[in-house]
Structures are given as C-alpha cells and as structure tokens.
C-alpha cells in the first residue's frame, strides 16, 4: 500500500529521476511524464493524488498544466518546480491553485517535506 500516487512532469530526465528517487523510498508511487500533454493524458488514464510540474517546458508550460488540472481534476494537488523563481510566477501559481512551489536545485528532504505537506492538506 503506497502513501499516494505522484506524477512528475518535467522535460529534464534528471529532474524526473531525482524526484522519483527521493520520493519512492518514502513510500510514494511515482510516475513520470516528459511533457504537459503526456502528463495530462496519464492523469486521464489513471488517478493521481499529486502532480509535480516544471514551470518552463516546451510546448506547454507549468502554468497551463496547472490550469488544466485545477479545471478538470480539482482534487489533485499541484506543486510547481521552478528553476526560475520570480515573485510574479509564484504569485500567479498560488493564485491558480498550486499548493506550493519548490526551487531547483532542491534537496530530497525539501521535496519530501513539500510533498508530505501537500498530502496532509489533502487529508484535511
């Protein structure tokens, strides 16, 4: 029995793997998508509790993915991963319903703690 299902959407393989390697030992089931389209298709096919999405991606960016998820699956929490944190985008993301945002490069502990917070929020 897993603590929950997490989908990581990032165009960078190393970021996806890092998230997977950090979260899997903590008992989360981690799936990965290389872009926004793939990610949304996967959400349609199976249920996820949490989505970690990169902000800057080709074709469809993190804000768009966040908007789509909050529109169709409001129950899924979203954490934005950004290597390019600005007040603007952070405010925008939170306004659109993101639970949190996490800056690259992040430590496994920081990621796990953010994910854990999100799940606790979900339970309430």
């Amino acid at each position: 029995m897993t603590k929950g299902k997490v989908l990581v959407i990032d165009d960078e393989d190393i970021v996806r793997t890092s998230c997977s390697r950090a979260l899997t030992p903590e008992g989360y089931e981690v799936k990965m998508a290389r872009n926004g389209f793939d990610g949304l298709r996967m959400i349609e096919e199976e249920e996820f509790d949490l989505v970690l999405t990169d902000l800057k991606m080709p074709d469809m960016d993190g804000i768009e993915v966040l908007g789509k998820i909050k529109e169709e699956w409001p129950g899924i929490e979203v954490i934005i991963i950004t290597g390019y944190q600005t007040v603007d985008t952070a405010v925008k993301a939170i306004k659109l319903g993101a639970f949190d945002y996490i800056e690259k490069p992040f430590t496994p502990d920081a990621l796990v703690s953010a994910v854990r917070n999100a799940f606790e929020q979900k339970k309430r």
């Binding site: 990032d10 960078e12 190393i14 970021v15 793997t17 890092s18 998230c19 390697r21 950090a22 800057k56 290597g83 390019y84 690259k104 490069p105 992040f106 430590t107 496994p108 502990d109 990621l111």
Partner: peptide
C-alpha cells in the same frame, strides 16, 4: 547568464538529490 542558469539548475538538482541519497 539567464539561459545558462536555467539549464544548469536541472543538472544541479540531480547532483544535490543523488548526493543526498
């Protein structure tokens, strides 16, 4: 610098994460 920074953040994430692991 911005372009370089953006590109480097992801590999750094890898280094930090796997370093910790």
């Amino acid at each position: 610098a911005a372009g370089v920074a953006h590109e480097i953040n992801s590999p750094l994430t890898g280094i930090v994460t796997f370093g910790h692991l």
